[in-house]
Each structure stands twice: as structure tokens, then as C-alpha cells.
């Protein structure tokens, strides 16, 4: 779906977050000059369309002790991926799991799974669990630990006409 101008104002107003007050949608409505009912209707519609995945808290992994994060990458037989990918994605310690194109010859990996843990040793154990799950359909793997955040910004929408 393509959000209309009012939806875009709503999206912009909530990019930093939702006000932590008893009636957050009424507070937003006041800010935008809309009714509370319209704000709720629009948010429900955006959610039904998949534009909003969920309204939730983003925890700070680092502050909760999840200091190590490793991007595990796997070279999985194409034919086996549709069955195996969802199983990897369902693991509770995998935060993101995607099929991506290989970049041969340098990069043979087509499955990416982000793994979090308190230590690198813990992440390494989780990597072994993924390897066991993939079994012989996996021809190779690697893990890339992040060493530094160089930039981090949320989703930013350009204003229309910009």
C-alpha cells in the first residue's frame, strides 16, 4: 500500500516513538490535529497492510548483557533452503535470517543469520547448533563479529517533495 499524506505525518510523528502516557493515540491525535479514533483507525490499517510490523519496545541488547553479535553466513544447497531457512529463523537466538545472493567467487554464502549472546563463546555454541540443524546441505560457513558501530540511525522518511 502507499501511505497517504496523513499517514506519512503519522509515521513521521511516531518515528521517534510513541508517547508514554495513558492515552498515547489521543496525545498523537492532538499533535496532528486528528481525532483519536482516526489515529487508531489509520494505525490499524497500516498494521493490516504490513507497513507497521508491531508496536513494541526495542530493547538495548548491550545493556541487557547481549554484548556479542555475530553475523553467521552459510552456503546452503539452493534446493534445501526453502525447508531449512524457516527452521533457522525460528531459533530463539536468531534475530534476523535472510536468503541473499552469493557473490562468487569471493562470497559463496546464501543464508545470513544474526546471532546474539552474552559472549563470543556463547555465540560460537549457537553457531554449532545452526550447523547441526543444516547438516550436509551446508557446504561451508563463516562468522563475522561486529567490532564497532560506525553509524546507526532509524528509518528516516524524506518529506514528500524533498
Amino acid at each position: 500500500m502507499s501511505p497517504d499524506a496523513t499517514d506519512r505525518r503519522l509515521i513521521e510523528a511516531t518515528q521517534a516513538g510513541l508517547p508514554l502516557v495513558a492515552r498515547p493515540f489521543a496525545a498523537l491525535a492532538g499533535e496532528l490535529g486528528l481525532s483519536e479514533a482516526e489515529v487508531m483507525d489509520r494505525l490499524a490499517r497500516l498494521k493490516a497492510a504490513g507497513v507497521i510490523r508491531r508496536i513494541a519496545a526495542a530493547p538495548n541488547h548491550y545493556r541487557l548483557g547481549m554484548i556479542a553479535n555475530g553475523m553467521t553466513v552459510w552456503d546452503v544447497e539452493d534446493a534445501a533452503l526453502p525447508a531449512l531457512g524457516p527452521q533457522v529463523g525460528a531459533l530463539e537466538f536468531v534475530s534476523h535470517c535472510y536468503e541473499r545472493p552469493r557473490a562468487l567467487p569471493d562470497w559463496p554464502y546464501n543464508l545470513f543469520a544474526m546471532v546474539h549472546g552474552a559472549t563470543r563463546a556463547e555465540v560460537a555454541v549457537k553457531r554449532e547448533m545452526i550447523a547441526a540443524l543444516l547438516g550436509p546441505a551446508c557446504r561451508g560457513s563463516d562468522i563475522l563479529y561486529s567490532t564497532r558501530i560506525l553509524k546507526k540511525t532509524g528509518l528516516r522518511l524524506r518529506r514528500q517533495g524533498e
Binding site: 497500516l46 507497521i52 526495542a58 530493547p59 538495548n60
Partner: peptide
């Protein structure tokens, strides 16, 4: 949120859906 345990609270948008 003030203590930084929660980075953000609000809608998670999917830019691809837009």
C-alpha cells in the same frame, strides 16, 4: 527508556511495505 534499557518504544515500520 530514560536508563537506556529500551532504545525506542513505538511502531516498527517496514520500509519495503511502503
Amino acid at each position: 527508556k530514560a536508563d537506556g534499557l529500551i532504545t525506542r518504544f513505538g511502531p516498527f515500520y517496514d520500509a519495503e511495505a511502503m
